[in-house]
């Protein structure tokens, strides 16, 4: 059976259908997981998509991390389950302490909505199987609080341990180390500011996002029965 991916929806999430659509094109089964759920309902992976969970009040992700489903997601992640946070989902994962660092206001104080070039850095993680270090991906960003911040010690640690997943080629938001995506040390939790679901069809101008979400599906196919993975179009 195709792997089941739980796509978390908080009040204010707005990318869940796009993400679910692309995951299904890639051969997965996607199920929207409402934030009030107390379990991940048997999902093989979790995606926390973009949006404005709980209105982004107080700080982006600050309230969302206390939604009931996040207790289950944290437990799933600590058990090695694959968890991908996209944009607001990345902010939620840092607030929840599942990823290092934090996301701060863009250095130019502008909401950025544009395609960016991203260099693949580390591939020893759940979105790395179809990527190679050095490859440049073109994927859109869409955020106001996307400037990655962490302490000097954290930056040194995540650099040395290969946890930096993607860097901006031309840093658009003042992120420390031009970091656009990071993983936890085990590589099963990844957060990324760019939106791979919005770069998943030639009509959208880029299909590079297919290799990001396709990698996630690949690592699940290995966990369950082999699943033929459509290369997408």
């Amino acid at each position: 059976m195709a792997p089941l991916i739980g796509v978390v929806e908080f009040p204010g999430t707005n990318c869940e259908r796009d993400v679910a659509h692309v995951l299904e094109i890639l051969g997965g089964r996607a199920e929207i997981l409402w934030h009030g759920e107390s379990s991940v309902k048997g999902a093989d992976a979790i995606v926390i998509p973009g949006g404005f969970a709980h209105g982004d009040y107080l700080r982006a992700g600050a309230i969302a991390r206390f939604s009931p489903v996040m207790t289950a997601v944290a437990e799933f992640a600590r058990g090695g389950g694959p968890v991908l946070g996209i944009c607001n989902g990345f902010q939620v994962l840092t607030e929840a302490g599942l990823l290092p660092g934090a996301l701060h206001k863009n250095s130019g104080l502008r909401f950025l909505c544009q395609e960016v070039a991203l260099e693949v850095v580390g591939t020893d993680n759940i979105i790395g199987s179809r990527l190679e270090p050095g490859r440049v991906l073109h994927i859109p960003i869409n955020h106001f609080e996307g400037s990655y911040v962490c302490s000097h010690d954290t930056l040194r640690n995540i650099t040395e341990s290969g946890q930096i997943v993607l860097r901006y080629v031309d840093n658009p938001n003042g992120s420390v180390g031009s970091i656009a995506a990071v993983a936890n040390i085990e590589g099963n939790v990844v957060g990324m500011m760019p939106h791979p679901e919005r770069a998943s069809d030639v009509l959208l101008g880029s299909t590079d996002g297919i290799d990001v979400l396709g990698s996630l599906i690949d690592c699940l196919a290995g966990d369950t029965e082999p699943t033929p993975v459509d290369q997408g179009h």
Partner: peptide
């Protein structure tokens, strides 16, 4: 717990 993020 909630009101601040010590990283930033």
């Amino acid at each position: 717990t909630l009101l601040t993020n010590p990283v930033i």
